[in-house]
Design a protein around this nucleic acid. Structure first.
Lengths: 125, 125
DNA sequence: ATCGTTCTTGACTGATCGGTCATCTATCTG
DNA sequence: CAGATAGATGACCGATCAGTCAAGAACGAT
């Protein structure tokens, strides 16, 4: 019953993740996300409720891959979450913690630290 | 000649650093900085030219201490610079690189990674 | 065909953003 | 004292922010 969605939610989440991991959370505007996804304002808010809601969806989608060490994009999104949201947002913090749960503290620190330097163009590794 | 300054520039830089390292760069508004420093808008722009100019001043002031491992605040500001500015701002990138210059890549990664996790309340170390 | 429901579309809102600038005040020089 | 200079103050600017909502369109059920 009711009209069908004209977009694929997985695609929208993937396209949004690409923007968030590059520009950061505060550095990304709703208009940036609308441009990247092709969605209209009302549709985005209907599907994800808020900017934070969409970010949480991207984080849930990628957090499982972050600790494998083979998905730079997933780690980049985790960096954004750790620095900008996690200190003040328990739900984001819990997702970040889950993503790194089966690593030791030292392994987790090395993973995110190395990726932070590479993302800043201070290391090519 | 001319009127004397009524504020201490070092104090203003220190107070601004405290805001930036907690809230991030994009998460900090000029009004936040005015409230924290007691400055008026015109004075801040006269002394530091822009939000970025003030951030650069805070980064220059603290970057020397970041690599000692004894100044969490300095590392936190470095984290903000690395994640939010360094990828797009060569001057910030150079300051970050200088701050970590006498560390190995692995040491630098461990330092910033460990601090990122602690700041996110995912590690008490 | 009509009704209820869901999604689409984009105009609109009040708030906030970084930054500018005219005016005023304090201080120096002569 | 008058004039020049530099800082102080805060009103103001256009742009952009996240979020809302009324109207219309597509669907299933009856």
């Amino acid at each position: 019953m009711g009209r069908n969605r004209t977009f694929d939610e997985d695609d929208v989440v993937a396209q949004s993740a690409a923007i968030f991991l590059r520009q950061g959370y505060e550095g990304t505007s709703i208009d940036d996300l609308l441009a990247a996804t092709g969605l209209h304002r009302g549709s985005l808010y209907k599907a994800f409720a808020s900017k934070r809601g969409l970010f949480l969806a991207t984080l849930r989608r990628t957090s499982a891959d972050a600790a494998t060490g083979r998905d730079d994009a997933a780690v980049d999104l985790l960096l954004v979450a750790l620095l900008e949201l996690a200190p003040r947002d328990p739900e984001v913090r819990a997702l970040c913690g889950g993503a790194l749960a089966h690593l030791t503290h030292a392994e987790a620190a090395a993973l995110v630290g190395q990726r932070l330097l590479t993302r800043a163009h201070l290391s090519d590794q």
